[in-house]
Amino acid sequence: MLVPSLMDGLLLGFVYGIAAMGLSLIWGVMDVINLAHGPIIALGMFGIYLGFTGLGLNPYLMLILVIGGGLLLGVLIYWVAVHRVINAPHLSTLLATFAVNMIIIGIATAIFTTSPRNVDFNLGGFPVGPITLPWTRILAALASVLVTALLYLFLYQTRPGKAIRAVSDNRAAAELMGIPTSWILALAFGLGTMLAAISGGLISTFFPFTILAGSSYELKSFVICVLGGLGNPLGALIGGLLLGALEGIIPAFMETSWVPVLEFVLFVLILLVRPQGLLGSKT
């Protein structure tokens, strides 16, 4: 009972990790907590859904379109909503991204309504000893690892990636060195939303969802970021695995409905006890 539930949790944890990585990247580079994260996750889900049910496209093929769309959407959101208040107090960016949240949810609810959808896609299972793991989850976990690896390659081996790290490190100095910081911030925001869209797309291959489903993954992303350290992509993946494992283990000891209680109590406690330690060096 414990082992399969733990395996499920861990596989899911990879995908949580990707969602949290998006939040974490944006926070780390520009000190913005993106409250539009949840709706973008939901858009990722609907992207796969529309491609699959509308055009009959394979979900993993459709994911490529979702990746491109997520990136562009993020860059757009940055220029429209974030750029003007990037140096204002935290409240401004929190509310600006929340306004984007309202806009996306408002429009998407009008189009899609809030009725539940699912991507009816099944690849069968992979037997591991006495248990069977669904292929969709295994592929989602593998895709998450691949995305993380590519993100690291991008950040450490390419010019724009290095520029993102420079801007994250010291925006003023980067500007003086001739880096177009605003475009780099827009790119980083785009990458963050792209990761959110990918996680949504992957989740849609095994869970049913509504247009509002993103918000619970957004909240999980907050918990993970605090677990793994805000602004630290690899930490987000590890935090995701931790949360996934937790969600796998807790039901063995108590009712599933207690899982969120523990998650959020843990979240607040970590914020209190190790605000610098687990949140990285930025305060």
Partner: peptide, 28 residues
Amino acid sequence: KAILRLRGAYFALATIGVNEAMRAFIKN
């Protein structure tokens, strides 16, 4: 006494956590 030690966005995040923890708790 506890969360007001946190500044800026950390306080905002903690208040979200408190609300969600309370809702999840009341549900149980």
